[in-house]
Structures are given as structure tokens and as C-alpha cells.
Nucleic acid binder design. Structure first.
Length: 433
RNA sequence: GUCCCCGUCGUCCAGAGGCCUAGGACGUGGCCCUUUCAAGGCUAAAACACGGGUUCGAAUCCCGUCGGGGACGCCA
């Protein structure tokens, strides 16, 4: 029997990182075992559900590269995949329990009659878990408005959709005995359960908006790429067993297993996400970086059409942790500085004679052969001739071409900027001194 | 309050009785490289919550305490 797993979010309008990781674990398991990954929308709470609210969730999943085999937009053998369209099923199921004496009416609602005894199940993450039924109250399965509650609809759907593995958040552990009870009331064997630990904020409290971004799409806007988010999320609460951490989606699929999921909560560590992002960004092909900058509206200078793009990217790659870091780093390659960093000027240009030195360098550069080695050689020779430290000219030139104190390697930049631009910027800076 | 889950460096993950003077990664400090900033290399500090058992031997098993989290809705 091939595994069938599902991600069943309620339509909240966006994909939360916690939900994203749950979806990711389900997807990873399904892909690892050649199973089926199903997306089902749990919108039985009419008061809170709206159709357009699912779009954000679908977008978030697609962004991460999590595709579904059955579900919204594509349908499938167990359609529909919106619980709001399956209400008749739940009503029939509730009636079935009523008729068999396993449920009873209570002021218009229908409650499940919890039998005495104990309910146990084996969790793939936590091992055997047992609850005393005495602690489970007779819960409502069908509301007085004839809409099902969560417990009824999940169980009915998971049975109908032949779900074999339920992988979901830890917060569902105490719901599980109720659902196990329903499975036996329907004469069915429950699927296997795996309850994964929750994701917490740095203060160890449940991740929420006050911790910053919680929606995966917010991270996209902040310049994170899906490869990094996927890798990071996969390793939050799960370990491959090895010391390696940097993986592609494919490698993660090959390694994924439920046993490696840890039992304790995991803190969402943004610094580490940044590192993953940087690493994945470094491994992205040039065309890929170009395409993503364009798609996110960050390609302000049409780098793609520029002959120098390969070289420029080579210089910027180690310096950009996020996609959003690119525009500022790119600027000097396309625009003369509009102003000069005050601190930089004070630190490197306040020495008397600096203006003359820069003009002399400009003069030297008018004749030098325009290669990295020659440009550097000429600068150092000029520094010697004027009994200056090369740093004086280097820092000054950097400020002239970028307006700032920090930049990629100076001589590599100068080559790319071209003689004319460098001379113009040298001249401009000199005349402000 | 009741029930459930969890407890290894600040954080994430290794460790499933001797291989542990506890390993890797992020972050942090130092050094190297160097024209700045990164990247890269090397290196340092940093943890088995506590108390009892079991055992020749426990981070690993058992019990308790403490701590954290979750659930107790006609929300999902």
C-alpha cells in the first residue's frame, strides 16, 4: 500500500511557517516513499472562512516547491477537497453514529458518546501514548447548524481519502484519542500518527506576529529564497543523523524519515536562516540570480543585459546574504555616487594633499593599460613616487567610485567600471575636496 | 485545576549503556588571508536541568522534583 498523506490547513489567508513545515514533512515523506500528497482545505467554520483566503496558502506552498497530487485546482479521485463542499458526508456520518447509538442529541447538536476505558495509539515521534477516556468529555461532532466540528470532518475525510499517515503539529496530541475513538466507532483502523514539535519564537513562546514575520511570503519579500527556507525548515525539529546541514530538496527527500523528528519544541533562529540563504544563494547559477532579481522587482539596473554581469555577480555573491542586498551593492556599477559617506571622507580624505594625489592618479590612469594587474601596479608606483602608503590612494579611489568606505575588491571593480568612469569619478571627488 | 508532550552548548541537530576528556552547524571571541567589507581557512569559549535508583559502567534505562510547551470550544 503506497502511503497517502495530507496537509489540511484552515483558510487563514497565508501560510504560516509552522504550517509550512508541517506541509513540508508530509510532502517529504510522500515523495520519499513514492506516495501521494494531498491538500485539503478545512473550511467548516463558515464564520471564519472565505474562498480567497486559500490563495495565500496555495501561493506559499508553490513558492516553497511543495506540489500536491490531489487537491484544490487539480481535483482528484476523492474530490471535492474543500470540506465546505462535503457537508452531506459529515451529516450522514453523524447520523450513522446516532443510529448506532454511539452518539446522542444535545439541544440540536450531536455529541459523541465516549465509551469507558482507555484509548491508546503509537506515535511515530513520541512512542506509545495512552489516555484515560474519563478525561475525554462527550464532544460535539455536528453543530446545531448541522456543520461538522473538526474531529468529525478530519476523521471522515481521512477515512474517505484513504490517508495512511497523519503528520501534524504537537498541539493535536490531545485531540488524537477523540479521533481514534471515532475511527473505531466507524469500524475503521486509524492511520499512523506522527506529532511534530511546535516552532517557537526566541522567547520560547509559540511563534506569533510579535516575533516578526510568520508568513512564508513575508520571507520572500525580505529576500529569502525558497531553497533556503525549505532547507532551514526541514532541519527545524528534524535531523538527518549526520553532521551535514546544507541540502537540496532532492537530497532532503532521499534522507527524510519520521524517526529523526525530535520530540522537543524548536526555536526559529533567523540568524541561521540567513546563513542558509547565503549558502544557497552562493550556489545559485548566474542566470538564476538574475531571473529572481527580475521577478522580485529588484533588477533595477537590468543587470541581465550587461556584458559584465558574470563578473559583477562573482564579486557580489559572497557579499549578499539576501536577494534584497543586491540593489545597493549593484549601484556603483551603474551610477556615479550622488554623495560621499561623511565618515569615509573624514577618515580617508582629510589629509592635506589628498586632492592632488587623486588628480595625479587620474592622470596616471589616462594612460595605463586597463587590466587589473596594470591598474594596481600603476597605483602602487604612484604611491611610491609620492611617498604615500598605497592605502591612501586605494581608500580614496574607493570612495571616489562608490561613495563609501566598503566595497568589493577595488581593482576588480575598476576594471569593470572602465577607464572613463573611473577617471570621471576620481575627478568629481577631487573637486569636492 | 486536570490531562498530555518535552528537557544535551545562547539556538538547531548528533549521541539509541562503555567508541563521550559529549560531536557538527548558526551565532560570538581570537588569529590567518588582505586595499575596505564580505567570503574562505584555523582556533577558542560554550551543554548532558536537579535528586535518587538500576548497572561493573548512564547524557543514554526507571522513579521523583523542578522547568518549558500543548490541550481541555457547537475553532481548526
Amino acid at each position: 500500500m503506497t502511503p497517502r498523506l495530507r496537509f489540511a490547513p484552515s483558510p487563514t489567508g497565508y501560510l504560516h511557517v509552522g504550517g509550512a513545515r508541517t506541509a513540508l514533512f508530509n510532502w517529504l515523506y510522500a515523495r520519499r516513499h513514492g506516495g501521494t500528497f494531498i491538500l485539503r482545505i478545512e473550511d467548516t467554520d463558515v464564520a471564519r472562512s472565505q474562498e480567497e483566503m486559500v490563495t495565500g496558502i496555495l501561493d506559499g506552498l508553490r513558492w516553497l516547491g511543495i506540489d500536491w497530487d490531489e487537491g484544490p485546482e487539480i481535483g482528484g479521485p476523492h474530490a471535492p477537497y474543500f470540506q465546505s463542499e462535503r457537508l452531506d458526508r459529515y451529516r450522514a456520518a453523524a447520523k450513522q453514529l446516532l443510529d448506532s447509538g454511539q452518539a446522542f442529541e444535545d439541544e440540536g447538536a450531536i455529541r459523541f458518546k465516549v465509551p469507558p476505558g482507555k484509548t491508546a495509539f503509537t506515535d511515530s515521534v513520541h512512542g506509545p501514548i495512552e489516555f484515560d477516556n474519563g478525561h475525554i468529555e462527550s464532544f460535539v461532532i455536528l453543530r446545531s447548524d448541522t456543520h461538522p466540528t473538526y474531529h468529525l470532518s478530519v476523521v471522515v475525510d481521512d477515512i474517505d481519502m484513504a490517508i495512511t499517515h497523519v503528520v501534524r503539529g504537537d498541539d493535536h496530541i490531545s485531540n488524537t484519542p477523540k479521533q481514534v475513538l471515532l475511527y473505531s466507532a466507524f469500524g475503521q483502523t486509524p492511520p499512523s500518527f506522527a506529532h511534530v514539535p511546535l516552532i517557537m519564537g526566541p522567547d520560547k513562546q509559540r511563534l506569533s506576529k510579535r516575533h516578526g514575520a510568520t508568513s512564508v511570503m513575508e520571507y520572500e519579500q525580505q529576500g529569502y529564497i525558497p531553497e533556503a527556507m525549505f532547507n532551514f525548515l526541514a532541519l527545524l525539529g528534524w535531523g538527518t543523523g549526520s553532521n551535514d546541514e546544507l541540502f537540496t530538496r532532492e537530497e532532503l527527500i532521499q534522507r527524510f524519515n519520521l524517526e529523526g523528528i525530535s520530540g522537543g519544541n524548536a526555536v526559529f533562529n533567523t540568524e541561521k536562516l540567513d546563513w542558509f540563504n547565503h549558502q544557497h544563494l552562493m550556489r545559485l547559477a548566474d542566470e538564476e540570480i538574475l531571473a529572481r532579481l527580475r521577478d522580485s522587482g529588484l533588477g533595477a539596473w537590468d543587470l541581465g543585459a550587461d556584458q559584465r554581469s558574470g563578473k559583477i555577480l562573482e564579486l557580489l555573491r559572497p557579499r549578499c546574504r539576501k536577494l534584497t542586498d543586491y540593489p545597493e551593492q549593484l549601484r556603483p556599477f551603474f551610477e556615479d555616487p550622488e554623495s560621499y559617506d561623511a565618515e569615509a571622507v573624514k577618515k580617508h580624505l582629510s589629509m592635506p594633499g589628498t586632492k592632488e594625489h587623486l588628480l595625479a592618479l587620474k592622470e596616471t590612469y589616462s594612460a595605463v593599460q586597463w587590466t587589473e594587474a596594470e591598474i594596481e601596479k600603476a597605483l602602487r608606483a604612484l604611491a611610491d613616487a609620492r611617498t604615500l602608503k598605497a592605502g591612501v590612494l586605494i581608500h580614496g579611489t574607493r570612495i571616489a567610485v562608490t561613495g563609501r568606505m566598503v566595497s568589493p575588491g577595488l581593482f576588480e571593480m575598476l576594471v569593470l567600471l572602465g577607464r572613463e568612469t573611473v577617471m570621471r569619478r576620481l575627478d568629481r571627488l577631487a573637486h569636492t575636496l
